[in-house]
Structure formats: structure tokens, C-alpha cells
Amino acid sequence: MIRVQNITKRFGNFPALHGIDLDIQPGEFIALLGPSGSGKTTLLRIIAGLEFQDAGQVLFNGEDVSERSVGERGVGFVFQHYALFRHMTVVENVAFGLNVRKRKDRPTKAEIKTSAEELLRLVQLEGLGKRFPGQLSGGQRQRVALARALAIEPKLLLLDEPFGALDAKVRKDLRRWLRDLHKRMGLTSVFVTHDQEEALELADRVVVMDHGRIEQVGTPEQIYMEPATPFVSYFVGETNRLPASNGTETLHIRPHDIEIVETDGKPVLVDNVFRKGGVWRIEGTLAGSDQIIEIDLPADRAAPEPGQSVHIRPARSKIFTTNANGVQP
């Protein structure tokens, strides 16, 4: 069980994290999701021991590891740009963590070789052991990086935007593959991403972060369907934000939660209509304002024409109140 307690971190004058509290259960696959500058990578690195917090504790199974160096924490870390050792072969990379162990903890050469090869099989790269990182594709390199991190039998696997440097197609394949790997190994994993699709697809629970604070922790379903704050509602999935007439409230409605009705709805002037996957995406302007509205209509329905006017009604929505500081949600 990993517990992060009241972690605060500043870089010079820049406050990166404010009093972060988080519990991670054994075997969980947690996503830290947020825009750049949200502090998600900083939090990950503090858990790893690559950064040190200014205040607060990091506890592994009740034990405070805050004073321990990264090498002593037993974490496996996978970097966005792989960080493979270019002058070593693939198998030497994977075996590295075992080779640098102190003599008394080190397995024999033969055992190390076997472990490394087993891991290469696990990541489906058997046969490529003698190659150099420079000779592999991006997806292959990331799998080597993963095998290398797993070789030291970590208690915790940390991944920093692991697919960020890869092509879209490779990213999708590796995502699925990582999910399967986690199911098989059951290793507690935390990964950082700014791609909400990735977070929603892979994680057991998602931690949404913004400006150094946790906005919401929940399952992907909870985050998407029941956003706790305006930021979460806006950042995860697409949202239309409509100020209510009383001036202190804002309505958040997802494009697919808008119904087009014959009568008794708000009028919208249609500007543009195009196919988006299995739906019609209608872009329009709310009558009597500049407010842009995005509506998703199932493709089997007839789409309106640009220039037409349609009437809409929210099927589901969330109301957020302007907070005490006057910040519009």
C-alpha cells in the first residue's frame, strides 16, 4: 500500500504541489491525469525518490521512505524517452539492475541471463537481445525499458508518459498490451499522462490534477459521469459550458447529452455539420449570444443543414456555482 501524505513541493518560487494526499491500494493501476504544469510528474518523481518533497511523507506499507534514495525504494521507473543505455545491448540493458547489485545480493551470471531472457519473452522481444537500442523502433525501445524496470522485481511500477513519444497507432497497441501485462502481473502501477483517453482506458482509478492540487479521485466512470469540479468536467471529455441566467451558476453539458427537440428548447443556429466517427458533430451558436455549442447526434438520424435553426434541451447536465473568488467554472 502506497500512501502519500500532505506532500508539498516548490521549485524556487513556483509551487508545484500543495498538500497532496493519496492512497494507492496493492495491485491498483492508477493514472495521474492533468495538463502540463499540474504537478503530476513531480508527484510521480517524489514517490520514486527522484525528487524530494519540501514537506509531507511518502509511506510504503506504513514505512516512511522519504529519506531513502531512489535506488533503495525498490521502484521500477519507465521514462517518456526510454532512457535506454545506448552503448549496451538490449539484454545488457535489461540485466543492468541485477548486475549492479552488491555481491551478496547478486544472482549468478547464469541466473541473470535467464531472468533477462525471460523478461524479453514477457515483453515479446525474444531474439532481439543482442541488438542495440539504436536499432529498435520506438515501441520496441519502450518495451525494453519496461523489461529493464521489471528485472529488479520492483514493488511499484512508475511510468512517466510512457507512450508520449510514440506514434498514435503504436500508442494504441502498447496501451492494450500494458493493460494485459498488468492483469497478468498484478503489480501496483502509477502512470502519468495528459491524454484522458489513455487514463480512462487503462486505469482502475484516475487522479485528476490541476495546478498542484488533486481535483478528483475516482474510477474512470465516476470521473466522466460525475465530475466533482468544473475543471474535471471540462478537462475530461468534451463539455459545453453555458452560463445560467442568474449569473452565479454555469451549466456543463456533454455534446452527446444534448437532445434536439421540436419545440420548447433553446434555439441554436447551425454553423457546421460533419461526421465524427459514429455521430454527426453539429457546431452552432446559441441564439442571442456568441456562445458556441457542440452537439453530437447519432448518425442514423437526419442531420440539420448549416444555416438552419434547431432547438436543444439538456438530457443530463451538471451545475457548478461560481466560487467565492469569482472564478467562473
Binding site: 527522484l50 529519506e67 534514495s69 531512489v70 535506488g71
Partner: peptide, 8 residues
Amino acid sequence: MNRTRSTT
């Protein structure tokens, strides 16, 4: 706090 960063 007297810790050394991992890369120095």
C-alpha cells in the same frame, strides 16, 4: 533535509 539528488 540532507538528501543528495540521484543524479549528482
